[in-house]
């Protein structure tokens, strides 16, 4: 088996994406549809939350992805800063819109779920607030990439922004543990049997989470490949202009 750094080669990355993408896309679709259909149609109502418990199959995977996509971006940004592999910077850029959409879904479904359960759409609760700030970081990150013409400078500055934003990604995950006040409950999934949601809800939830992860992998392969195409096209255009 070759080194992971082989994939820093754009040609090798594109070749791998061509092979992996169809399979991951099919697997993501099947898993996502299976998890959501199971969760929506074949799970009972919760004795306290009624039918709103079905929102868990979207809200929890989206929230997990919102935080973990940022951590993936952090790792690839650090690889860029340390080893200067362009593909890793482009992978971080490619992942950002996916993370931003996941954050919007988590915030929107959280508000929709919160209204009947807490009696309010929004509360300046530690987890909700840190999530909103994380969303703003996603927007800022994407705007920074677009605002700077030189791609290497853009990659450097967005990598630094990503490191700073990681504080809020961590806060989004652990805010409930740091501060006791606030409406948001603790983690829905836990190794502690007492805290974990019941098996009847958790099995389709794990399947949906797997679907969201696979969808993310497929989208990152697709979007990173797009970024490589764009980078190659601008290099060819620059060469044409030079004559």
């Amino acid at each position: 088996m070759g080194s992971i750094w082989e994939y820093a080669n754009p040609v090798k990355f594109i070749r791998t994406a061509e092979t992996v993408l169809p399979w991951v896309s099919i697997l993501a679709t099947v898993t996502l549809v299976a998890g959501l259909v199971w969760g929506f149609f074949f799970t009972p109502d919760d004795y306290r939350q009624g039918a709103t418990v079905k929102i868990i199959y979207i809200h929890v995977p989206a929230a997990l992805m919102a935080i973990n996509v940022w951590f993936m971006m952090l790792v690839t940004s650090l690889v860029w800063l340390i080893r200067r592999h362009h593909v890793s910077a482009l992978a971080a850029k490619a992942a950002a819109p996916v993370g931003a959409i996941m954050t919007v879904i988590a915030l929107a479904t959280g508000a929709i779920w919160g209204q009947p359960m807490w009696g309010t759409w929004w509360e300046w609760d530690p987890r909700l607030t840190s999530f909103l700030i994380l969303f703003l970081f996603y927007l800022g990150y994407m705007a920074l990439w677009e605002a700077i013409d030189n791609p290497d400078t853009a990659a450097d500055l967005t990598a630094v922004l990503c490191i700073v934003g990681s504080v809020f990604a961590i806060l989004s995950r652990y805010a409930v543990n740091f501060w006791n006040q606030g409406l948001h409950q603790g983690a829905s999934l836990s190794l502690d049997k007492e805290e974990n949601v019941a098996d009847v809800f958790s099995t389709p939830l794990y399947i949906t989470i797997a679907g969201f992860i696979l969808l993310f992998i497929a989208l990152v392969f697709l979007r990173t490949r797009t970024e490589i195409y764009k980078r190659r096209a601008s290099a060819l255009l620059a060469r044409e202009r030079l004559g």
Binding site: G50, K54, I112, W113
Partner: peptide, 11 residues
């Protein structure tokens, strides 16, 4: 039940 709007709009 009464949560149809919330659940369906989320999905």
């Amino acid at each position: 039940g009464k949560y149809a709007d919330a659940v369906l709009s989320s999905y």
